[in-house]
Structures are given as structure tokens and as C-alpha cells.
Design a binder for these strands. Structure first.
Length: 1120
RNA sequence: GCGGGUAUAGCUCAGUUGGCUAGAGCGCAGCUCUGAUAAAGCUGAGGUCCUUGGUUCGAAUCCAAGUACCCGCACCA
């Protein structure tokens, strides 16, 4: 079976990949792989669900490459796998996109989609969400297939099935939702589910409260107008508290003012009024650090101290001090006491104590609005103060707030109105722009505000149980210390807010008796059916989503009252967190579940996940079974652009997956210039991801990609092409009997030995989830060892015309190496390796490389000694080339001799003896001599003064110092320098000190030789070029020029020629005459023409060899 | 503020349990090679392995402190 010719110019890798996809489909490669491993031992991978809300980007491909690579590796080792991909379906992110599509602006719009019919509206909206998920799940499926990700993907007819019956798992499936119900039931049985009334972070656009996890995502540095306002004290005429706030709208709901009892407060007299404020706050350089570090909002001036505020407003006088503790209980007039809603609070304004009040920001007196802040709420509760809740779910002032009613809290104009109003009342002391990090909705970027709401929580007081489970999991990569991060989160996290006042999501199975406040958690569909007293018929047949599930009512066994489901949907991390149970059908077949649980491996991008998915699966699994859901977790960092900036569609620096894989893409550089780039193909992306350190962000883009293509993909491809293109000419038969190792060359046995090392590295790397270690080693193997040494040194063995054992050995060796490499790399670059394999395989080998076994180490081929010796040889070659380079003699010019002084190591000497021929050829010398140390040194040190350093030290005495150095024993000085010792010299009776840097040591060889030293090894080259050597050098030049002309003449590699060489130069003629046979052999000349050739088919050129003109005329001898 | 991590060439990064003269790629400079050929290779310059102290025969590696950056948590008026 002949090999296909391999194109090595302009290879279209994406096209080859598409051909491989077609091949896989045609031969049903994936199905055959599953069948082959059907009864194998299990390897359980659990996919973290990808949000099916948009097309996948290149950043998703990192994790998916890992997922695929490890699965393929284990499959090649005969393991049985689940191959189940997951889609995350429910939640606000989908809702927001659907809102955009439908051009809806608020929750109100959603409920009015079908005018006047909230039920139908919600039903429609929920269906739209579901359809969006289906749409993008399909898109992502296609993209993943193109990436080469082998999963049990849904195909045509599968998409018509309910979500729960498809091949991939969908978190919107009934199985998933009801599994969460059983989790919540377990929590409830332990009394952990509770209803909380609290000031919660709230997004006024989405009309939804945010959990602690979500809060963390959305902090942004923004500047707000902060105000200093005075609260006149009651019963202390002319005296005021000075308070400060960055959210003026909350003043409308002021109830109290807090001071730190421990702090000292100043009485500042200003314009006949007394102002109280903390002593430390008066002169504090506010945000000094941030200003210095440039953590600032552009255009915002530097903050001034409070003292400066007073100065600039007409001066001040400090007239006394008072302890914070002594201020407790004072009463004051609030800024908006005239509002009806503030009536109750107005009567009770007083100064309260709060130990957390500081004096580095603000005034040391904190305005407390229990309806507008978490701390405020808890303080108010503790102090028995009323709460004023000013905002509705859209962040708009409710009735009772006078002119504020109907205004949105975060509107600029609302703040304007408030400031003006305070000004009119004469209580506004100062306004400033204040930059600070403020929470925003992570989804829609709207500024959050705090609102008093009722939400549902899981009490996380059982966090220690989760921690014990976490202890059993291996977190990788080690350097990011994932376990510590997870434990840290578990220590600090608050209770889990599981409710969302939205539409598309898990229906929280909480039914409430509104009259008594009793509530129940339903744990399954069956339980609900049993308990249902109303609405079941209408609900039956629907998925447990709004609005249908809301129709079902149950009865409170205590009171007989009807109980209704709370309208809230669930936090989406519940959806993703239950998948170790739901996707393995925990509630359906516990035995089967046990076979796959816990997962051997999960991998996701780590930023955020320690409080999201990792947290959710760990917490939920602890509650369900008190067991870790996975054994090993591999996290990876983020994909950035090639300039290390975050990728953003809007910045023009994100790369769509299709662009990277097939279509090419545009990219805007930091200067704003847009460039168009060709596609990379999936394998190149996969290799980029696999070779990268998962702990570090990856800078993805055309430049790093090109670099890798050049140094790895193309190198491998060129070697493969080299092999095939010669093997087909020679009709090499891979199934012919193998040449015994004893008859193979050292070079053959060396590359095979090092190949075993690479196999070992590969296996260790895959087992330890450290692909980088393997890929970097693989690059070195392909580049340095295979391409740059083995193939280069072996080329002539392939070219020669006779078909002897040596040629067969070379073919067999390279064939083995290529086949093995293809299998080693197959899990990482499945397309390229399949292409190579398909061309190399024989009929008796499996149809696809992915049906092959992963290579194992053959200890019989390992020869550590040979590897060491070869390494030394490589360093000698490098030394020799370096010597030639320094002596300015090009490699083409042959030289008479090289002498090598090896180190004390006997292996090094052995290497010189063993590989003398290699050294001779590679360095183009006639003779290699191993120098015996007993014959004396090859090189002697020569020490020169370093006048640059000596000049400043010795000034006018420099000349004397220089001659003293010249007079000293060079070997002694050199030894001192080598030992980094100070040298002492006597100069006119004085002793002078010379530092190592004052002396420049070089190693000199005897006349006519040029030497170089590296560690213990020394190499000297005979640089004397005799007439004969010069002639030979010229002959080699002639060969090269003729070859060049062959190429110019468009001759084929194997074409024979008739050649005429004409020159006026006597030297050149002599060279030609004495090397005629050599030139003929190298250039495939079968006939020498004594005179100028004639005819159209003659290719003519005049070139220069050694400065002399040479006429080259040649023609293909076929045309004769 | 609390906790964790990192700091190696101009840039991006490797560097296994402490062990030769600390490496690669890109970039830069100078070359070479030419039947893998619109490919490839070599050589060179460039290092306070963040700083200081400690442990050790020996530290880029281990320990402590400091500095800078990154991440996580808490983020407040």
C-alpha cells in the first residue's frame, strides 16, 4: 500500500480537519470506540454545564480541550465513559437576552406580553427562554463537534425530544428540577430553609435580589456625588451632627445616626454653628492610597480633607471635644422629616452606638437608614428602631415620599432634586465626587441598591460538613491552591439566598400558608401530586416551570388553609449543583448511579467557580450523601487576547470560534488597527490550550498561534511529509519484517530510546492531569530531537539509491516514531494525528487512530547511556559550530582536524569515540581527535585588563597596573577569576586588589588553531586551510550552486542531468577537476559536457564561487 | 482590611525531590544551510533568578521579613 504524497507547502489544516470530521462520521468512529470500551473499567467525567445562551467563544475551547483530551486518553486505555455534555439552561442570563430580543424593558413588560393576561404572558416568556436555550444548545453542539470534542451529541431527531430524554443533559429537564426538589427537601428536613426579611442588594432593572455570589461579580469603580449634611440636634440650639453619605437618596429614609463610642468627636465652630464630627475624620487624607495608586475615576478631583472644606467655606474654630459614648441618645431633626413616610421615624431620630464606625472615611457619624442597607437594617433591628422602605421593585420611590414619589432612586435628576432640596433647607454642607467600588448587576450592569425584601435562604451553619468533604478532593493546579480558596469561601460565605423574583428557572418547591406564615417544602413530583388539592389537572403534563406549576395548591394540615407556591424561581447554581446526582439518575437507579459516582474528574475555568459551580456541587453533594462529587478538580485561568487584555466583543478583540476554526477573523490591536487573520484550525487551538500552564491566563491570538504552528505542528508535518514522500518513492512496506535492534544505527536506537521517555512523560502527565508537562516535552522531542537531529542526520540514508538493511532500518525507525507520536498526541490534536495515521496505517490496523491503544513504554528500547552520550555529542556540535563561527569559517569549508578534550566524565569520552563520524560530518572536518588530558591543556588562558573598571580605580597609575597584569602568571590569574576571588598584585611595593571583573580571561589555542571552552569540555579547530581543503570547499559551493540551478530549471528531485561547467579561473578549474565525481554524484549528473550545451531545453546561469565567475549549463538527460 | 499566590532575559514564560556555567520562544545583532526548500538551522548580545536575612557543603528552588503585582474574601456609611 503506497503512501499518499504529502503536501508540505501551504497546508490547509482546517480543510484537513473537515475531511477528518467526515471520515469519523463515515466510519462511525465514535460509536465504534464506545462499543469497543463498552465493558471496560469506568472512568467517570462530569461535565460542568455550559450556559446555552450564546454561541461558544474561543475561551470555552480551553476547558473543552481538556475535557476531550482526558476522555480520549482514557478511551485509548480501554476505559468506559459516559460522554455526557451538559447545558445550563435556566436563569436570569437567558431572561435578559430574551428581553433584549423582545425589546422588553422591565418585569412589568414581561407580565404584559399578552396584554392584560399575566399567566399567558409568563407562559409565553418562559417558552421563549426555553427556545433560546434549545437554539444555542444546538449551535454549541455543532461548534463542539467542529472542535473535535467527542461527546454523545444530540442529532436531528434528538432535538425534538423533551430535554430530559436527550443525550446531553439539560438543567431545565424535569429530572434536574425534581432532583433539586429532593435536595431542598433534605435541607428542610434539617430545618435549614428559612424566609428572611432583610435589606438585600437589588437590581432595579431586573427587579431581582442578588445573592452573595452574584454580588461579588459586579463591583465596579464609579464616582458618586457624596454629600455632607448637617442634622440639627434637638435641644442643643446651634449644634449639629455632620453626616456623610454617597447615596443621597437614602437620606429620605434616615432613622438614626451612629457614632463610635470609643472615638473622640470635635466640636467645630463654623459660621456660628457647632458641628460634631470625629477627630480623626477632620484631618484624614481620604482615599490617599487610592489616589496614589491611580485607583481613581477619571475626571474626579483629589479629595480634600474635611478641615479644608471648613477652611474654604469661611474658616473654623475647634471649641471642644466629646467622647462618642457621651453623644449616645442625643436626638436630632432628620433631613426629610416632613415626608409622610418618615413620620414614625422622625419622632425617634437619635444617636446610637456602632463599634464599626471608622474615621478614615466620612465624618465618623454614620447616617442610618434601615430600609436601605444591610448593616443599617440589623442595627435598626437591634436598637428597636422602625424601618423606612422607600423603593418599589423598580427602584422607584413609593407613595408617601412627597415629590420623590415616582422618581427612580438612581436617576441623576433625583439626586439633583435631593441636593437642591437639602440646599433650600440649609442643611447641605458640601457635595463632592467620590470614587468607590460599588456593586452592579453582573448581568445588566445596572447599579444596585438596597431594598427591604423577603427572600428564601438555606442556612449554611453546616458549612463544616462541606469542608470535611472538600478535604477529600484533589484540587489542581496546585499552585493556585484551590482547596484553600474553597475552604476560605466556605468559612466566609453567608447563608445561601436561593430565591429569585423572576420567571425562567427552577420552581422553588415552597408552598406557603399566607395566613399563618407556615411553609412546606415538597420533595418530589409524586409528593406534590399526593398533596395537591387544586390545579393538578391543569399542571399535569407540563414541566415544573412557571406559570403552570403555580396553579397547584396544597392544604396546610394544621389549619386547613390553602397553601400556594411562592412565585420565586431558584438560584441557577442549584441547577448546576445537582448534576452529580441528576445526570446519573440518582433518584431513578441508585445502583447505576453508584457506578459513576463520584466523578473521577471535573475541569472548568476557575475564576468565580469556587463560589459558584465548585461550591454548589460540593455543598449539594454534602447534603445529599455527605460525599465528594468528584475526586479531582482541574481549574484553568482565563483566555485573553494576545496583548493580555480581556477579550470583549465590543472592544473588537474577541475571536469567534468559527473564525478561529474555519472562517478567519478580524482583530483590533491596541492601537485600534483592525487586521484580518486566517483561521487556525481546531488542533492548533487545542495545542495552545494544552501546552499552557492552567494557573496562568492565556494570551490567545494569531501571533502566539503562528509561533506554535511553526515550531510544532509544521515541524511534525514536515517530518511526516519527508517520510511519506520518500517512502512512497521507495515503496516502503511497513509490514515487512523488522530489522533487529542490533542492526540499527546508534541514531535509530537513540531516537527510539528517547521516544520511550516521551511515552513515560505522556502517561504520567495524563494521569496527573498535567498536559503542559507533556506538551512542552513533546515540542522539544519533535523539534530538537526528531526534526533537527534524527531526520537531519539520517537524510542521506533515505536518499541513497540502494535498498539495504540500513535504509530499511531508517524507514522502520522513522515509521515507528511517527506512528507512536501520532498516538501519543491523538488525545490532544485528534485531527492532525488522524490524518497522519490514515496515511501511515496498514490494513490490519484499526480504522481510526482513536481506536488504537495508547502507547506503552518498551523498556527493552531504553538506553540511558546512549541518550547521555548523544546529549553530549549535541553539545559538542554546538561548541564546534560556535568555534567555526568565531573563527569566521563557514561550515561548507572543510577543515583538517578537530580536537576534543572531554570532561572527566568517561561517558563524554565514549561519546566522542562512538559518534566521531557524526561529529566529522556535522562540523565538516576530516578528523576528530579525542585529546588525552595527560598530553597537556588544549587551551591556555590569556588574561587582559578590563580598563573600563580599572580606569576609574587607578587613574594615572593604570599603565603600571596594565603592565603588572601582563607580567603576572596568566594561569594563576585565570584560576582566581574562575573562583571569583580577589587577586592581589604588588605594584611599586604597594599591594593592589583586583576584582574578578577587572580581568578578562580568554582561552587561546596554539597558532593556527581556534578553541572554545564550555565547562570541562574544550574544542579546538585547525583553522589552516590548505590548497586541497580550499578546492574541496569550492567544490561544495559548486554543488550548491548547481542544485540551485536545478531548482530554477524546475527539475524533479529524481531527474538526471547533463552538465557543463565553464570558468576562466585556474583555481576553480583545479577544484572541478579533482572533485568531478563528487559533484556528479551530488547533482545527479550522468553526463559531463566538455563544451557549452546547445538547444532550447538548456538552463544557463552565471554564478560566483569563491569570487570567481562560473558558467553553469544543464539540461535534463531525459530530453536527450 | 483579611487570606492566598506570584516575582527568572526587552516581551511571554519553562525550570521535577535543593546539585554542573539558570533555559526556551519571540524580538534584536551577526551568520549559515539549501533534495523537508515560500522550509530550516547556528552563533551572539541580553540575568542582582524582586530585596534583605536565615537553614545548608550547596538555594532560582526551603524558611522569615520587606517591596511590588495578581487573585480570592470583606467592602462599608
Amino acid at each position: 500500500m503506497p503512501f499518499e504524497k504529502v503536501e508540505t507547502q501551504q497546508v490547509d489544516f482546517p480543510a484537513l480537519e473537515r475531511a477528518v470530521l467526515a471520515l469519523w462520521q463515515r466510519i462511525e468512529a465514535f460509536e465504534k470506540l464506545r462499543e469497543k470500551n463498552r465493558t471496560g473499567p469506568r472512568w467517570s467525567f462530569l461535565d460542568g454545564p455550559i450556559t446555552a445562551n450564546n454561541p461558544m467563544g474561543v475561551h470555552h475551547a480551553w476547558g473543552r480541550t481538556y475535557k476531550d483530551a482526558f476522555q480520549r486518553y482514557h478511551a485509548m486505555n480501554g476505559k468506559q465513559l459516559r460522554y455526557q455534555n451538559g447545558f445550563d439552561c435556566q436563569g436570569l442570563w437567558v431572561e435578559v437576552e430574551v428581553e433584549k430580543e423582545l425589546k422588553l424593558k422591565s418585569k412589568r413588560d414581561i407580565e404584559n406580553l399578552v396584554p392584560g393576561d399575566a399567566f399567558a404572558s409568563i407562559d409565553h416568556f418562559v417558552q421563549q427562554c426555553q427556545q433560546r436555550v434549545d437554539k444555542f444548545a444546538r449551535v454549541q453542539t455543532e461548534q463542539s463537534i467542529r472542535l473535535g470534542y467527542w461527546m454523545d451529541w444530540d442529532r436531528g431527531e434528538d432535538w425534538a425530544k423533551p430535554a430530559g430524554e436527550r443525550r446531553s443533559y439539560f438543567t431545565m429537564s424535569e429530572e434536574n428540577n425534581y432532583s433539586i426538589w429532593s435536595f431542598l427537601k433534605k435541607c428542610h428536613n434539617r430545618g435549614l430553609v428559612y424566609r428572611g426579611y432583610d435589606a438585600m442588594p437589588w437590581c432595579p432593572r431586573c427587579s431581582v435580589g442578588l445573592s452573595q455570589m452574584e454580588m461579588a461579580e459586579g463591583y465596579q469603580l464609579v464616582a458618586h456625588r457624596a454629600v455632607f449634611v448637617r442634622f440639627p440636634l434637638r435641644g442643643r440650639v446651634g449644634e449639629n451632627l455632620l453626616v456623610w453619605t454617597t447615596t443621597p437618596w437614602t437620606l429620605s429614609s434616615n432613622v438614626a445616626a451612629a457614632v463610635n463610642p470609643e472615638l473622640t468627636y470635635l466640636k467645630v465652630l463654623h459660621k456660628e454653628q457647632i458641628f460634631y464630627l470625629a477627630k480623626g475624620a477632620f484631618t484624614a487624607q481620604r482615599l490617599e492610597e487610592q489616589w496614589k495608586k491611580k485607583e481613581w475615576v477619571e475626571g474626579v478631583p483629589k479629595l480634600t480633607t474635611l478641615e479644608q472644606h471648613f477652611k474654604s467655606k469661611g474658616g473654623y474654630e475647634i471649641v471642644g471635644e466629646v467622647k462618642g459614648a457621651d453623644m449616645i441618645g442625643w436626638t436630632y431633626d432628620g433631613p426629610f422629616d416632613e415626608l409622610p413616610a418618615a413620620r414614625e421615624a422622625a419622632a425617634r431620630h437619635r444617636v446610637i452606638a456602632w463599634k464599626d464606625v471608622g474615621e478614615t472615611e466620612g465624618t465618623g457619624i454614620v447616617h442610618i437608614a434601615p430600609g436601605c442597607g444591610k448593616e443599617d437594617f440589623h442595627l435598626g433591628k437591634a436598637e428597636g428602631l422602625p424601618s423606612v422602605a422607600p423603593l418599589d421593585e423598580y427602584g422607584v420611590f413609593q407613595p408617601g415620599f412627597g415629590e420623590l414619589t415616582g422618581k427612580a432612586a438612581v436617576d441623576h435628576s433625583t439626586t439633583d432634586w435631593i441636593l437642591e432640596n437639602l440646599q433650600q433647607k440649609g442643611v447641605l454642607f458640601a457635595v463632592e465626587k467620590y470614587p468607590h467600588s460599588y456593586p452592579h448587576c453582573w448581568r445588566c450592569k445596572t447599579e444596585l441598591l438596597f431594598r427591604l425584601v423577603e427572600e428564601w435562604f438555606i442556612d449554611m451553619k453546616w458549612r463544616d460538613e462541606i469542608k470535611r468533604v472538600v478535604e477529600q478532593v484533589t484540587f489542581l493546579p496546585e499552585s493556585i491552591n484551590g482547596k484553600a480558596r474553597e475552604l476560605d469561601w466556605l468559612t466566609n460565605m453567608g447563608d445561601w439566598m436561593i430565591s429569585k423574583k423572576r420567571f425562567w428557572g427552577l420552581a422553588l418547591p415552597i408552598w406557603v400558608d399566607e395566613q399563618t406564615g407556615d411553609f412546606e417544602v415538597i420533595g418530589s413530583l409524586e409528593e406534590l401530586k399526593e398533596r395537591a388539592v387544586e390545579g393538578w389537572e391543569k399542571f399535569e403534563g407540563h414541566t415544573p416551570h412557571r406559570p403552570w406549576i403555580d396553579l397547584v395548591k396544597i392544604k396546610n394540615p394544621k389549619t386547613g388553609n390553602k397553601m400556594s407556591r411562592i412565585p420565586d424561581v431558584g438560584n441557577p447554581w442549584l441547577d448546576a449543583g445537582i448534576v452529580p446526582y441528576s445526570t446519573m439518575f440518582y433518584n431513578r437507579d441508585r445502583t447505576d448511579w453508584e457506578k459513576w459516582f463520584p466523578a473521577d474528574f471535573i475541569t472548568e475555568s476557575f475564576p468565580g467557580q469556587f463560589r459558584n459551580w465548585f461550591y454548589a456541587i460540593l455543598a449539594m453533594s454534602t447534603m445529599m450523601e455527605n460525599r465528594p462529587p468528584m475526586k479531582t478538580l482541574l481549574g484553568h485561568a482565563l483566555v485573553r487576547d494576545q496583548w493580555d487584555r480581556p477579550m470583549h466583543k465590543s472592544a473588537g478583540n474577541s475571536i469567534p470560534f468559527e473564525g478561529a476554526a474555519d472562517e478567519g477573523y478580524d482583530l483590533k490591536d491596541p492601537k485600534g488597527k483592525v487586521g484580518h487573520y486566517p483561521p487556525l484550525g481546531a488542533d492548533l487551538c487545542r495545542w495552545m490550550y494544552s501546552r499552557h500552564n492552567p494557573a496562568n491566563n492565556l494570551d490567545f491570538g494569531p501571533e502566539p498561534a503562528e509561533e506554535l504552528r511553526g515550531k510544532f505542528i509544521l515541524k511534525l508535518w514536515n517530518v511526516y511529509g519527508f517520510f511519506c514522500n520518500y517512502a512512497r518513492l521507495d515503496s516502503f512496506d511497513p509490514s515487512a519484517p523488522s530489522v533487529p535492534m542490533s542492526e540499527r544505527t546508534d541514531l535509530d536506537r537513540w531516537i527510539l530510546s528517547d521516544l520511550q521517555g516521551l511515552i513515560r512523560t505522556a502517561r504520567t502527565a495524563f494521569e496527573n492531569y498535567n498536559l503542559m508537562a507533556f506538551c512542552l516535552e513533546a515540542e522539544r522531542f519533535v523539534d530538537d530531537k526528531l526534526s533537527n537531529w534524527y531526520v537531519r542526520r539520517s537524510r542521506r540514508r533515505f536518499w541513497k539509491s540502494e535498498h539495504g538493511t540500513d535504509k530499511q532500518a531508517a524507514y522502520q525507525t522513522l515509521y515507528t516514531v511517527l506512528m507512536t507520536l501520532a498516538k501519543l498526541f491523538a488525545p490532544i490534536v485528534p485531527f492532525l494525528t488522524e490524518t497522519i495515521y490514515q496515511n501511515l496505517r496498514t490494513a490490519d490496523q484499526p480504522e481510526s487512530i482513536h481506536l488504537c491503544d495508547y502507547p506503552t513504554v518498551d523498556e527493552a528500547l531504553v538506553d540511558a547511556e546512549l541518550s547521555d552520550e548523544m546529549n553530549f555529542l549535541l553539545s559538542l556540535v554546538s561548541l564546534g559550530l560556535s568555534a567555526r563561527n568565531s573563527a569566521k569559517i563557514k561550515v561548507r569549508q572543510p577543515l583538517a582536524e578537530i580536537k576534543v578534550l572531554a570532561g572527566a566524565d568517561s561517558e563524554e569520552r565514549a561519546a566522542v569515540e562512538r559518534f566521531g563520524d557524526q561529529l566529522r560530518e556535522e562540523l565538516n572536518v576530516k578528523k576528530v581527535t579525542l585529546h588525552d588530558p595527560e598530553w597537556g591543556p588544549l587551551l591556555t588562558p590569556e588574561v587582559k585588563p578590563n580598563v573600563k573598571t580599572l580606569g576609574p580605580k587607578f587613574g594615572s597609575r593604570l599603565k603600571q597596573v596594565v603592565s603588572a597584569i601582563a607580567g603576572a602568571d596568566a594561569a594563576y590569574l585565570a584560576a582566581k577569576v574562575r573562583a571569583s576571588d580577589t587577586t592581589e598584585l604588588t605594584l611599586d611595593g604597594d599591594s593592589i586588589q583586583l576584582e574578578p571583573a577587572d580581568l578578562v580571561v580568554s582561552m587561546k589555542a596554539e597558532e593556527g588553531w581556534f578553541g572554545i571552552v564550555s565547562g570541562d569540555a574544550q574544542v579546538v579547530l585547525d583553522t589552516r586551510i590548505t590548497e586541497e581543503l580550499a578546492r574541496e570547499g569550492m567544490a561544495r559551493d559548486v554543488v550548491r550552486q548547481v542544485q540551485e540551478q536545478r531548482k530554477e530549471a524546475n527539475l524533479q528531485m529524481e531527474d538526471r542531468i547533463t552538465l557543463f561547467l565553464g570558468t576562466e579561473s585556474e583555481k576553480l578549474r583545479l577544484s572541478l577537476d579533482s572533485h568531478r565525481d563528487y559533484i556528479a554524484a551530488e547533482t545527479l549528473t550522468v553526463e559531463w559536457s566538455p563544451q557549452s550545451l546547445t538547444g532550447d531545453a538548456v538552463h544557463r546561469a552565471t554564478v560566483k564561487v569563491d569570487g570567481q565567475a562560473l558558467n553553469i549549463e544543464l539540461k535534463s538527460s531525459r530530453l536527450k
